[in-house]
Nucleic acid binder design. Structure first.
Lengths: 144, 144
DNA sequence: TGCGATATGTAATAACATAACAAATCGCGC
DNA sequence: GCGCGATTTGTTATGTTATTACATATCGCA
């Protein structure tokens, strides 16, 4: 179900895409969070909207991740909304996760992508997806 | 407790390190497996040796991973023994995981490491550890 | 209208991981 | 060898994350 929002234009066409109600609820919750949320945290937040079972959340997440609108952070078992810039990127995305404040920075690096591509080609390995997560302390937290 | 072993020389100094019984059992099981094993799979395999509770396995794994003798694959919630070559590497290690046969290839790439280092420095982000896992189909499986 | 594909709801259960506490063992100075 | 702190172990219980199975509803479209 399409929903109103106040994001800037770059996001609109994405939000307008035909998300189902549950998908929109989950993506909305992720977009308003400033740290990753686990499926069960999402469920708790969305009980007020009528969600009752983990599966409702997992199913929504599955579609959102599939479409690149959300990402799963494997090292956290949690999810984030995709940052605007990369919404339509097909390539590799890396995440820097601050252990102190929990915030996540999403970035892309074509050289890394190329290196992985080269390795894969050399090995005859066909890449389906890549997980790249760095854990540590972000600049602001280090400053404090 | 130190334990006797019959492994070949290249491995010995590592195995000879003072592993406790549980650690040695877990590392042994991982070393003999040709795919990653989950903590519960390890537990099942090691019940014959007297292990009874998940925590016994998790504790052993924690130490092994800490010492770089085993690695946790975040995208699988499973563990592998470290491949010989990198046992003493301090740097970033990447894993290529075949979705078909389950085998895992471990490799290092200093350029990727440098790129991540550069990004981190630019952001003031202090890296503690990095997860890098590529999922796909390995050469032999693609050939079949 | 009817039909296949997709999405939903619900309950039950599987799989992964940790907390809390007691007991045993190890390393080591004496 | 004795004692003591640090580490490892054993055990129970519980918490967290994810999926299976099945019934129902809705959507897109001929």
């Amino acid at each position: 179900m399409a929903h109103s929002h106040d994001d800037h234009a770059g996001h609109d066409h994405v939000w307008a895409a035909d998300l189902t109600r549950n998908q929109a609820l989950v993506l909305g919750a992720l977009a308003h969070a400033d740290t990753p949320l686990s499926a069960y945290q999402l469920l708790d937040q969305l009980r007020a909207e009528g969600l009752r079972a983990p599966l409702q959340v997992y199913r929504a997440l599955e579609k959102l991740v599939e479409r690149g609108l959300a990402h799963r952070l494997e090292s956290l078992n949690a999810f984030v909304a995709c940052a605007d810039e990369h919404c339509h990127r097909t390539g590799l995305i890396a995440f820097a996760i601050c252990s102190t404040c929990g915030k996540v920075d999403e970035f892309a690096d074509t050289i890394i992508e190329d290196r992985l591509g080269a390795w894969s080609e050399g090995q005859g390995f066909t890449v389906e997806r890549t997980t790249m997560e760095i854990r540590g302390t972000c600049g602001s937290c280090a400053a404090s």
